[in-house]
Design a protein around this nucleic acid. Structure first.
Lengths: 143, 143
DNA sequence: TTTTAAATATAGCCGTGGCTATATCGCATG
DNA sequence: CATGCGATATAGCCACGGCTATATTTAAAA
C-alpha cells in the first residue's frame, strides 16, 4: 500500500508451526526425564518428588502424570508411585543424552557451566537430530 | 525406600521456572519481530498478514496483538493497521539480531542452512545474553 | 450513492499448564 | 485395631493460545 504491491509473501508459517509443535512435547520430555532420574535414584517416582523437582504444585504434577499416562509414557495406580513404560524410559534416555550433549557443546564453545545448564534446559527441546549430530561431531573433533 | 533414604534433593526447580518464563515471552517476541518485518516491507502490519505469516487464524493474531498492546509493545486503532511502539521496535531489532546470530552460529558448526533456520526458531528464545556473546565470539574468531 | 467484498473484531469453545482448597486414601503408630 | 498424618486425588479457578462462526466496519466497485 505504501511502497510495495507484491503479495504479502505467503511466507514460512511452517517454521512457527514447527516450533509450536516442539514446545508441545517439551514439558512431557522434562517430566519423563525427571521421573527417570527419580526412578534411578530412589527406585520409584512419587508425585510429591516430581512436583518438588519441577518446581510446581502437587496437583500440577498429578495432572502432568495423567497426560504422560494418556501418551503411553508412564503408568501408575491411584495413590501409588509413577513408573515409566518402555517407550517412556527410552524417551527419558534420549532426552537425558541430548541434554548432556547440548550442555557439553555450549561449554565447549565458551559458555560458562551454569549458564549452559540454564540455557540448555530451554534450548534442548528444539535441537533436531541433525543439529545434535553436528554438536556431537564438533565435540568429537574439538574435544 | 528401595536403596536411598536421603532427602529427595530439593533440587533445581529454578531451571524449569526459568525455561517456562522464557517460553512465556517467546511468542510475543515472534509476533513483534514479524510485525517489524511487515512494517519494513509494507509500511504497515495488517492483522491478516500477521496471521498469514505466523500460520495462525486471524482471530488468533488479533488476540496476540491485544496482548502486545497490553505489554506496551504495539499500538493500533480498531480496524486499522498495527504499529510497534519504540520499545516494541527495539525488541524486534534485538530479536532479529539474535536470530541471525544463532542461525549463523549453527551453520558455522556444521548444521545445514534449512535445519539451522528451523531449529533456531525455537532455540533462540532460550539463548541468554551470555551465550549469545559466546556465539558471536566464536563467529568472530572462526569466521 | 448504494452495494458488495474484504478486513477486523467479537463471541464462545477447547486443551494446556499453572494455582489453591479440599476430599480421600494408605500407612505407621499408638 | 483405631486413628491420625502424610501423600494423592479431585474440584474449580485463571490466563494463554489455538480454533470456528458470526458480527461489524472499511473500502472498493457498480
Amino acid at each position: 500500500m505504501t511502497q510495495d504491491d507484491s503479495p504479502p509473501a505467503a511466507a514460512q508459517p511452517d517454521r512457527f508451526a514447527h516450533a509450536r509443535e516442539a514446545q508441545a512435547v517439551a514439558l512431557l520430555e522434562d517430566y519423563v526425564e525427571m521421573i527417570g532420574d527419580l526412578m534411578a535414584e530412589l527406585g520409584e517416582a512419587r508425585v510429591a518428588d516430581i512436583a518438588l523437582r519441577m518446581g510446581v504444585a502437587q496437583p500440577t504434577a498429578t495432572k502432568a502424570v495423567a497426560r504422560l499416562k494418556r501418551e503411553g509414557l508412564a503408568v501408575s495406580r491411584p495413590y501409588r508411585g509413577v513408573f515409566l513404560t518402555d517407550s517412556g524410559a527410552e524417551l527419558a534416555d534420549r532426552v537425558r543424552a541430548r541434554h548432556r550433549t547440548v550442555v557439553a557443546f555450549l561449554v565447549a564453545v565458551g559458555v560458562p557451566e551454569e549458564v549452559a545448564e540454564l540455557d540448555a534446559e530451554g534450548m534442548e527441546h528444539h535441537v533436531s537430530a541433525t543439529t545434535l549430530r553436528a554438536f556431537e561431531a564438533f565435540l568429537a573433533e574439538k574435544g
